[in-house]
């Protein structure tokens, strides 16, 4: 059920995790045990399905998590795109599993450093996640002291956030740069425009091989021919989907070098 709806694989090994995480959902919906909850789940009770998805997904993230990936975006991906798109002055970027928005706002900060909006660029920065609570948090743009201390240099914290009690709120102009939307990666990407960059980090690992392949193939379909895909530094899409080529000394960075379809036919 979870696999069909969210692509998430729950093995026997993860069953204690299931028990732990479903506890609060069981109490909220008045189930006595996980078995009766899981039985009801099969009937597709939508609120329950959502609650279970939200309880079962791991939403851990941080600003500039795996800093090197953001350096790669800033130093490799962005400079060449700024040249390639100089005539249209338009960039489309998608954070495909954005958790509470940290990844998207980190990108917004890097883009803002380059003063692209002031130079007349249009930047579409989409941030999506299957978890509605996470999307709501991203839209709110309010982070705990703990969250802002893992990954943000203090000077960046002062310039990009305002303090509200013990929390920190992203500044309005960075907030405006990001469009949040609840979206399941198993659904059609039809609503997205052609993209220049996709961040799809630390989520593919929760999917089974078939789902992973399908997501990677569909990312290749909506990426521009010179577009880049960034995954976690320990993740790879080389050999999983045939559409992507790794970049030397840039872990997690892949370019859509050759059309997927052609290669597949050839292979």
């Amino acid at each position: 059920m979870m696999q069909r709806r969210a692509g998430i694989v729950l093995t026997e090994k993860k069953s204690h995790l299931v028990e732990n995480r479903l506890g609060p959902v069981m109490r909220r919906f008045g189930f006595k045990d996980t078995a009766s909850l899981l039985a009801e789940l099969r009937h597709g009770h939508e609120a329950l399905v959502q609650a279970v998805i939200e309880a079962m997904t791991t939403n851990d993230s941080a600003f500039f998590r795996d800093r090197k990936t953001f350096d790669e975006f800033r130093d490799i991906v962005l400079p060449s795109l700024l040249v390639a798109r100089a005539s249209t002055k338009r960039l489309s970027i998608w954070c495909a599993a954005c958790a509470a928005g940290q990844e998207a706002y980190s990108l917004a900060m890097l883009l803002d450093d380059r003063k692209l909006l002031a130079e007349g660029w249009t930047i579409d920065l989409y941030a999506t996640d299957i978890n509605g609570q996470m999307i709501a948090r991203g839209e709110e743009g309010l982070y705990s002291q703990f969250e802002v201390q893992r990954g943000l240099p203090i000077r960046r914290l002062l310039t990009c956030f305002t303090q509200e009690g013990n929390s920190w709120r992203i500044t309005p102009h960075l907030r405006r740069m990001v469009t949040f939307r609840k979206f399941n990666l198993l659904d059609s990407f039809g609503w997205l425009p052609d993209l220049d960059v996709v961040f799809c980090r630390n989520v593919l690992m929760y999917f089974d091989q078939k789902t992973r392949l399908s997501v990677i193939d569909r990312i290749a379909d909506i990426l521009a021919p010179d577009g880049a895909l960034l995954v976690g530094p320990a993740e790879s899409v080389a050999g999983v989907g045939v559409g992507f080529t790794p970049v030397e000394n840039a872990p997690g960075l892949f370019y859509k070098a050759r059309p997927v379809q052609l290669l597949r036919r050839a292979g």
Binding site: R67, Q145, Q149, R150, I154
Partner: peptide, 19 residues
């Protein structure tokens, strides 16, 4: 150079030190 707001833990010290 940097500023750690208490309460802190090892992950925050690590993050700030790498900063």
């Amino acid at each position: 150079d940097e500023y750690i707001m208490k309460p802190f833990d090892k992950s925050i010290i690590e993050a700030k030190f790498s900063e």
